[in-house]
Simulated scan of single mutants.
Amino acid sequence: MKLGLQLGYWGAQVPHNHGELVTAAEEHGFDAVFAAESWGSDAFTPLAWWGSRTERVRLGTSVAQLSGRTPTNCAMHALTLDHLTGGRAILGLGVSGPQVVEGWYGEPFGKPLARTREYVSIVRQVLAREAPVRNPGPHYPLPYDGPGATGLGKPLKPITHPLRADLPIWLGSEGPKNVALTAEIADGWLAIYYSPRLAPMYNEWLDEGFARAGARRTREDFEIAASCQVIVTDDRAAAIANVKPILALYIGGMGAPELNFHAQVYRRMGYEEQVEAIGQLFRAGRKAEAAAVVPDAMVTETMIIGNAAQVRAELDVWEAAGVTMLLVTCGDVEQVRLLSEIANGATTELAG
Protein backbone atom coordinates (compact mmCIF):
# COMPACT_ATOMS: atom_id res chain seq x y z
CA MET A 1 0.00 0.00 0.00
CA LYS A 2 1.39 3.35 -1.09
CA LEU A 3 1.43 6.56 0.93
CA GLY A 4 0.16 9.91 -0.30
CA LEU A 5 0.74 13.22 1.48
CA GLN A 6 -2.43 15.31 1.81
CA LEU A 7 -1.59 19.00 2.06
CA GLY A 8 -5.27 19.94 2.18
CA TYR A 9 -6.38 23.52 1.67
CA TRP A 10 -5.10 26.64 3.41
CA GLY A 11 -6.67 28.10 6.50
CA ALA A 12 -6.65 31.79 7.36
CA GLN A 13 -2.89 31.98 6.74
CA VAL A 14 -0.54 30.36 4.25
CA PRO A 15 1.06 27.20 5.72
CA HIS A 16 4.73 27.77 6.45
CA ASN A 17 6.13 24.27 6.03
CA HIS A 18 4.46 22.68 3.02
CA GLY A 19 7.64 22.93 0.96
CA GLU A 20 9.53 20.96 3.61
CA LEU A 21 6.79 18.36 3.78
CA VAL A 22 6.72 17.84 0.02
CA THR A 23 10.50 17.50 -0.15
CA ALA A 24 10.43 15.01 2.72
CA ALA A 25 7.62 13.02 1.10
CA GLU A 26 9.70 12.56 -2.02
CA GLU A 27 12.82 11.68 -0.03
CA HIS A 28 11.00 9.09 2.07
CA GLY A 29 9.26 7.25 -0.72
CA PHE A 30 5.73 8.68 -0.70
CA ASP A 31 3.99 7.96 -4.00
CA ALA A 32 2.06 11.22 -4.34
CA VAL A 33 1.27 14.65 -2.93
CA PHE A 34 -2.27 16.07 -2.99
CA ALA A 35 -3.72 19.54 -2.52
CA ALA A 36 -7.35 20.43 -1.89
CA GLU A 37 -9.63 23.44 -2.15
CA SER A 38 -12.71 24.68 -0.37
CA TRP A 39 -13.43 28.42 -0.63
CA GLY A 40 -9.99 29.92 -0.17
CA SER A 41 -6.80 28.56 -1.72
CA ASP A 42 -7.07 26.59 -4.96
CA ALA A 43 -5.88 23.04 -5.57
CA PHE A 44 -3.70 23.49 -8.65
CA THR A 45 -1.32 26.36 -7.80
CA PRO A 46 0.37 24.68 -4.79
CA LEU A 47 0.98 21.55 -6.86
CA ALA A 48 2.65 23.56 -9.62
CA TRP A 49 4.72 25.51 -7.10
CA TRP A 50 5.88 22.61 -4.94
CA GLY A 51 5.99 20.22 -7.87
CA SER A 52 8.86 22.25 -9.31
CA ARG A 53 10.95 21.10 -6.32
CA THR A 54 10.36 17.41 -6.92
CA GLU A 55 11.12 14.88 -9.63
CA ARG A 56 9.26 11.68 -8.77
CA VAL A 57 6.11 12.07 -6.66
CA ARG A 58 2.79 12.28 -8.43
CA LEU A 59 0.80 15.46 -7.92
CA GLY A 60 -2.95 15.30 -7.46
CA THR A 61 -5.94 17.46 -6.68
CA SER A 62 -8.04 16.07 -3.85
CA VAL A 63 -10.34 17.47 -4.90
CA ALA A 64 -10.82 20.16 -7.52
CA GLN A 65 -14.45 21.26 -7.29
CA LEU A 66 -16.49 20.76 -10.44
CA SER A 67 -18.39 24.01 -10.08
CA GLY A 68 -15.20 26.05 -9.73
CA ARG A 69 -14.22 25.62 -13.38
CA THR A 70 -15.83 24.67 -16.63
CA PRO A 71 -14.72 21.21 -17.75
CA THR A 72 -12.59 22.59 -20.59
CA ASN A 73 -10.92 25.05 -18.22
CA CYS A 74 -10.23 22.25 -15.74
CA ALA A 75 -8.70 20.19 -18.54
CA MET A 76 -6.45 23.15 -19.36
CA HIS A 77 -5.21 23.22 -15.75
CA ALA A 78 -4.58 19.48 -15.78
CA LEU A 79 -2.73 19.33 -19.10
CA THR A 80 -0.60 22.34 -18.12
CA LEU A 81 0.37 20.80 -14.78
CA ASP A 82 1.08 17.49 -16.49
CA HIS A 83 3.48 19.11 -18.95
CA LEU A 84 5.27 21.14 -16.28
CA THR A 85 5.82 18.08 -14.09
CA GLY A 86 6.72 15.55 -16.77
CA GLY A 87 3.53 13.51 -16.61
CA ARG A 88 2.96 13.37 -12.86
CA ALA A 89 -0.51 14.94 -12.59
CA ILE A 90 -3.59 13.24 -11.18
CA LEU A 91 -6.87 15.07 -11.69
CA GLY A 92 -9.02 14.46 -8.63
CA LEU A 93 -12.54 15.84 -8.99
CA GLY A 94 -15.54 16.17 -6.70
CA VAL A 95 -18.93 17.85 -6.66
CA SER A 96 -18.50 19.44 -3.19
CA GLY A 97 -21.86 20.23 -1.55
CA PRO A 98 -24.82 22.56 -2.04
CA GLN A 99 -23.66 25.12 0.52
CA VAL A 100 -20.42 25.68 -1.40
CA VAL A 101 -21.73 25.18 -4.92
CA GLU A 102 -24.73 27.48 -4.56
CA GLY A 103 -23.35 29.78 -1.88
CA TRP A 104 -19.82 30.31 -3.20
CA TYR A 105 -19.91 29.49 -6.91
CA GLY A 106 -23.48 30.60 -7.58
CA GLU A 107 -24.31 27.44 -9.48
CA PRO A 108 -27.15 24.94 -9.00
CA PHE A 109 -26.17 21.78 -7.16
CA GLY A 110 -28.80 19.52 -8.69
CA LYS A 111 -28.03 16.40 -10.74
CA PRO A 112 -24.51 15.84 -9.32
CA LEU A 113 -24.08 12.40 -10.93
CA ALA A 114 -25.19 13.55 -14.37
CA ARG A 115 -22.98 16.64 -14.11
CA THR A 116 -20.00 14.51 -13.11
CA ARG A 117 -20.49 12.15 -16.04
CA GLU A 118 -20.65 15.03 -18.55
CA TYR A 119 -17.74 16.85 -16.95
CA VAL A 120 -15.41 13.86 -17.08
CA SER A 121 -16.44 13.09 -20.67
CA ILE A 122 -15.51 16.61 -21.78
CA VAL A 123 -12.17 16.55 -19.93
CA ARG A 124 -11.33 13.27 -21.64
CA GLN A 125 -12.20 14.76 -25.04
CA VAL A 126 -9.79 17.63 -24.41
CA LEU A 127 -7.00 15.29 -23.30
CA ALA A 128 -7.54 12.93 -26.24
CA ARG A 129 -7.43 15.82 -28.74
CA GLU A 130 -8.89 13.61 -31.45
CA ALA A 131 -11.54 16.06 -32.61
CA PRO A 132 -13.01 19.45 -31.71
CA VAL A 133 -14.75 19.19 -28.37
CA ARG A 134 -18.51 18.85 -28.53
CA ASN A 135 -21.11 18.08 -25.90
CA PRO A 136 -24.89 18.21 -26.31
CA GLY A 137 -25.49 19.04 -22.66
CA PRO A 138 -27.70 19.63 -20.84
CA HIS A 139 -25.23 20.72 -18.16
CA TYR A 140 -22.18 21.77 -20.21
CA PRO A 141 -23.35 22.31 -23.82
CA LEU A 142 -20.49 22.87 -26.26
CA PRO A 143 -20.76 24.98 -28.28
CA TYR A 144 -23.13 26.94 -26.07
CA ASP A 145 -26.42 27.62 -27.80
CA GLY A 146 -28.67 28.64 -24.93
CA PRO A 147 -30.12 32.00 -23.87
CA GLY A 148 -27.90 34.92 -24.87
CA ALA A 149 -25.83 32.88 -27.32
CA THR A 150 -24.52 34.74 -30.37
CA GLY A 151 -24.51 31.63 -32.50
CA LEU A 152 -20.84 32.25 -33.29
CA GLY A 153 -19.39 29.59 -31.01
CA LYS A 154 -17.45 26.81 -32.71
CA PRO A 155 -16.03 23.50 -31.47
CA LEU A 156 -12.32 23.76 -30.68
CA LYS A 157 -9.37 21.52 -29.96
CA PRO A 158 -6.84 22.51 -27.30
CA ILE A 159 -4.00 24.51 -28.87
CA THR A 160 -1.49 22.74 -26.66
CA HIS A 161 -1.15 19.03 -27.32
CA PRO A 162 -1.70 17.24 -24.00
CA LEU A 163 1.23 15.19 -22.75
CA ARG A 164 -1.00 12.23 -21.85
CA ALA A 165 -4.40 11.38 -23.23
CA ASP A 166 -4.81 8.95 -20.34
CA LEU A 167 -3.96 11.42 -17.55
CA PRO A 168 -5.62 9.70 -14.56
CA ILE A 169 -8.92 11.08 -13.31
CA TRP A 170 -9.95 10.12 -9.80
CA LEU A 171 -13.29 11.00 -8.24
CA GLY A 172 -14.06 11.91 -4.66
CA SER A 173 -17.34 10.16 -3.87
CA GLU A 174 -19.19 8.96 -0.80
CA GLY A 175 -22.60 7.50 -1.65
CA PRO A 176 -23.39 4.20 -3.39
CA LYS A 177 -24.48 5.67 -6.72
CA ASN A 178 -21.53 8.05 -6.86
CA VAL A 179 -19.03 5.32 -5.98
CA ALA A 180 -20.49 3.07 -8.69
CA LEU A 181 -20.17 5.93 -11.17
CA THR A 182 -16.57 6.38 -10.06
CA ALA A 183 -15.77 2.74 -10.82
CA GLU A 184 -17.43 3.07 -14.22
CA ILE A 185 -15.82 6.26 -15.58
CA ALA A 186 -12.75 7.04 -13.47
CA ASP A 187 -9.27 5.66 -12.87
CA GLY A 188 -9.42 5.86 -9.08
CA TRP A 189 -11.57 6.55 -6.05
CA LEU A 190 -10.71 9.23 -3.49
CA ALA A 191 -12.47 7.84 -0.43
CA ILE A 192 -13.13 9.95 2.64
CA TYR A 193 -14.02 8.39 6.00
CA TYR A 194 -13.28 4.95 4.64
CA SER A 195 -13.99 2.08 7.03
CA PRO A 196 -12.24 -1.25 6.40
CA ARG A 197 -15.13 -2.95 8.21
CA LEU A 198 -17.44 -1.85 5.41
CA ALA A 199 -15.18 -3.03 2.58
CA PRO A 200 -17.73 -5.65 1.43
CA MET A 201 -20.34 -2.91 1.02
CA TYR A 202 -17.91 -0.67 -0.88
CA ASN A 203 -16.99 -3.60 -3.10
CA GLU A 204 -20.64 -4.09 -4.04
CA TRP A 205 -20.86 -0.45 -5.10
CA LEU A 206 -17.60 -0.64 -7.02
CA ASP A 207 -18.48 -3.93 -8.69
CA GLU A 208 -21.71 -2.40 -9.97
CA GLY A 209 -19.67 0.23 -11.78
CA PHE A 210 -17.03 -2.17 -13.07
CA ALA A 211 -19.78 -4.36 -14.54
CA ARG A 212 -21.35 -1.58 -16.60
CA ALA A 213 -20.92 -1.58 -20.36
CA GLY A 214 -17.96 0.56 -21.35
CA ALA A 215 -16.44 0.66 -17.86
CA ARG A 216 -12.99 2.18 -18.05
CA ARG A 217 -11.15 -0.01 -15.54
CA THR A 218 -11.26 -3.30 -13.72
CA ARG A 219 -10.56 -3.81 -10.05
CA GLU A 220 -7.02 -4.92 -10.90
CA ASP A 221 -5.98 -1.56 -12.39
CA PHE A 222 -8.20 0.76 -10.35
CA GLU A 223 -6.74 2.79 -7.48
CA ILE A 224 -8.44 3.33 -4.13
CA ALA A 225 -6.91 6.24 -2.23
CA ALA A 226 -8.41 6.55 1.24
CA SER A 227 -7.93 9.64 3.37
CA CYS A 228 -6.96 8.54 6.85
CA GLN A 229 -5.71 10.45 9.86
CA VAL A 230 -2.77 8.48 11.23
CA ILE A 231 -1.54 9.41 14.70
CA VAL A 232 1.46 7.60 16.16
CA THR A 233 1.29 7.93 19.92
CA ASP A 234 1.72 6.00 23.16
CA ASP A 235 -1.31 7.83 24.61
CA ARG A 236 -4.04 6.48 22.39
CA ALA A 237 -6.93 7.63 24.60
CA ALA A 238 -5.77 11.24 24.63
CA ALA A 239 -5.26 11.29 20.86
CA ILE A 240 -8.76 9.90 20.29
CA ALA A 241 -10.22 12.58 22.57
CA ASN A 242 -8.37 15.31 20.68
CA VAL A 243 -9.88 14.18 17.37
CA LYS A 244 -13.48 14.14 18.55
CA PRO A 245 -14.12 17.91 18.22
CA ILE A 246 -12.94 17.78 14.59
CA LEU A 247 -15.20 14.84 13.84
CA ALA A 248 -18.11 16.63 15.49
CA LEU A 249 -17.44 19.65 13.25
CA TYR A 250 -17.64 17.60 10.07
CA ILE A 251 -20.67 15.63 11.17
CA GLY A 252 -22.55 18.56 12.66
CA GLY A 253 -21.31 21.62 10.82
CA MET A 254 -19.89 20.79 7.39
CA GLY A 255 -23.10 20.76 5.42
CA ALA A 256 -26.75 21.68 5.77
CA PRO A 257 -28.90 19.73 8.25
CA GLU A 258 -30.92 18.44 5.32
CA LEU A 259 -27.88 17.32 3.31
CA ASN A 260 -24.55 16.58 4.96
CA PHE A 261 -22.60 13.93 3.04
CA HIS A 262 -20.16 13.35 5.91
CA ALA A 263 -23.03 12.67 8.30
CA GLN A 264 -24.56 10.26 5.82
CA VAL A 265 -21.32 8.27 5.69
CA TYR A 266 -21.40 7.70 9.45
CA ARG A 267 -25.09 6.84 9.34
CA ARG A 268 -24.22 4.04 6.92
CA MET A 269 -21.69 2.78 9.44
CA GLY A 270 -24.49 2.35 11.98
CA TYR A 271 -24.09 5.53 14.02
CA GLU A 272 -27.53 6.97 13.27
CA GLU A 273 -28.36 7.98 16.86
CA GLN A 274 -24.96 9.53 17.50
CA VAL A 275 -25.02 11.48 14.23
CA GLU A 276 -28.44 12.91 15.07
CA ALA A 277 -27.36 13.94 18.55
CA ILE A 278 -24.06 15.44 17.35
CA GLY A 279 -25.86 17.46 14.70
CA GLN A 280 -28.44 18.86 17.08
CA LEU A 281 -25.87 19.83 19.71
CA PHE A 282 -23.42 21.33 17.23
CA ARG A 283 -26.05 23.45 15.50
CA ALA A 284 -27.20 24.68 18.91
CA GLY A 285 -23.69 25.96 19.58
CA ARG A 286 -22.97 23.26 22.18
CA LYS A 287 -19.82 22.09 20.43
CA ALA A 288 -18.07 20.56 23.44
CA GLU A 289 -21.15 18.49 24.21
CA ALA A 290 -21.34 17.42 20.57
CA ALA A 291 -17.75 16.18 20.74
CA ALA A 292 -18.50 14.31 23.96
CA VAL A 293 -21.22 12.33 22.17
CA VAL A 294 -18.70 10.94 19.66
CA PRO A 295 -17.85 7.38 20.75
CA ASP A 296 -14.29 6.13 20.47
CA ALA A 297 -15.35 3.64 17.79
CA MET A 298 -16.45 6.45 15.46
CA VAL A 299 -12.91 7.78 15.57
CA THR A 300 -10.98 4.53 15.31
CA GLU A 301 -13.21 3.14 12.56
CA THR A 302 -11.94 5.69 10.05
CA MET A 303 -8.57 6.68 11.56
CA ILE A 304 -5.44 4.87 12.67
CA ILE A 305 -4.27 5.81 16.16
CA GLY A 306 -1.78 4.04 18.40
CA ASN A 307 1.86 3.18 18.92
CA ALA A 308 4.09 2.06 16.08
CA ALA A 309 3.15 -1.61 16.42
CA GLN A 310 -0.58 -0.82 16.49
CA VAL A 311 -0.25 1.44 13.45
CA ARG A 312 1.66 -1.25 11.53
CA ALA A 313 -1.09 -3.77 12.26
CA GLU A 314 -3.82 -1.35 11.16
CA LEU A 315 -2.01 -0.57 7.91
CA ASP A 316 -2.20 -4.27 7.09
CA VAL A 317 -5.95 -4.22 7.76
CA TRP A 318 -6.53 -1.27 5.43
CA GLU A 319 -4.44 -2.85 2.70
CA ALA A 320 -6.32 -6.14 3.03
CA ALA A 321 -9.57 -4.19 2.67
CA GLY A 322 -8.52 -3.06 -0.81
CA VAL A 323 -6.94 0.34 -0.20
CA THR A 324 -4.04 0.92 -2.61
CA MET A 325 -2.97 4.29 -1.23
CA LEU A 326 -3.37 5.86 2.21
CA LEU A 327 -3.70 9.66 2.05
CA VAL A 328 -2.25 11.07 5.26
CA THR A 329 -1.69 14.51 6.72
CA CYS A 330 1.61 15.29 8.44
CA GLY A 331 2.37 18.23 10.67
CA ASP A 332 6.12 18.11 10.26
CA VAL A 333 8.99 16.35 8.51
CA GLU A 334 9.48 13.95 11.41
CA GLN A 335 5.96 12.61 10.95
CA VAL A 336 6.65 12.04 7.25
CA ARG A 337 9.77 10.07 8.11
CA LEU A 338 8.08 8.08 10.87
CA LEU A 339 5.07 7.06 8.77
CA SER A 340 7.35 6.01 5.93
CA GLU A 341 9.39 3.81 8.26
CA ILE A 342 6.28 2.24 9.79
CA ALA A 343 4.74 1.59 6.36
CA ASN A 344 7.93 0.04 5.08
CA GLY A 345 8.14 -2.09 8.19
CA ALA A 346 4.59 -3.32 7.60
CA THR A 347 5.50 -4.17 4.01
CA THR A 348 8.57 -6.07 5.17
CA GLU A 349 6.59 -8.07 7.70
CA LEU A 350 3.97 -8.99 5.09
CA ALA A 351 6.65 -10.02 2.64
CA GLY A 352 8.36 -12.15 5.24
Rank of each mutant, 00 (worst) to 15 (best):
K2G: 06
L3V: 10
G4A: 12
G4L: 02
G4W: 00
L5K: 06
G8S: 08
W10S: 14
Q13F: 13
Q13E: 15
G19H: 13
L21W: 03
A25G: 04
A25H: 03
E26R: 11
E26C: 07
G29Y: 07
V33F: 02
A36P: 04
S38W: 13
W39E: 10
G40C: 06
D42R: 05
D42S: 13
P46D: 13
W49D: 09
R53T: 07
V57F: 02
V57M: 05
S62L: 11
R69G: 04
T70M: 14
T70Y: 10
N73K: 12
C74H: 06
C74E: 12
M76T: 08
H77C: 14
A78K: 01
L79F: 06
T80E: 09
L81W: 03
L81C: 06
D82E: 09
A89I: 04
L91E: 03
L93T: 03
G97S: 09
V100M: 03
V101N: 03
F109H: 08
S121I: 01
V123M: 09
R124Q: 12
A131M: 11
V133E: 03
N135T: 01
P136G: 13
P136Y: 10
G137N: 10
P138R: 12
P143N: 14
Y144P: 03
G151H: 09
K154C: 07
P158E: 13
P158F: 09
R164M: 07
R164T: 06
R164Q: 15
I169W: 00
L171H: 00
S173M: 13
L181Q: 11
A186F: 00
A186I: 00
G188L: 04
W189H: 09
I192N: 12
Y193D: 10
L198T: 00
M201D: 11
Y202R: 09
L206F: 04
D207R: 00
E208M: 02
G209T: 05
A211L: 09
A211F: 06
G214T: 08
A215E: 00
A215V: 03
R216C: 00
T218M: 02
E223V: 00
A226V: 02
Q229I: 11
Q229N: 13
T233Y: 06
R236I: 07
P245Q: 06
L247Y: 15
L249G: 11
I251T: 15
G255R: 01
A256S: 15
E258D: 14
H262A: 10
V265L: 12
R268K: 08
R268L: 12
G270I: 05
Y271P: 02
E273R: 14
E276R: 13
R283F: 08
R283W: 08
R283E: 06
E289A: 07
V294R: 01
V294N: 03
P295Q: 04
A297T: 14
A297I: 05
I304D: 02
I304W: 05
G306A: 11
A308H: 09
V311Y: 04
V311A: 04
A313N: 09
E314Q: 15
E314V: 04
D316P: 01
A320L: 07
T324Q: 06
M325E: 11
L327N: 08
V328L: 10
T329H: 13
G331Y: 08
D332C: 13
V333I: 10
S340K: 05
N344T: 12
G345Y: 08
E349C: 07
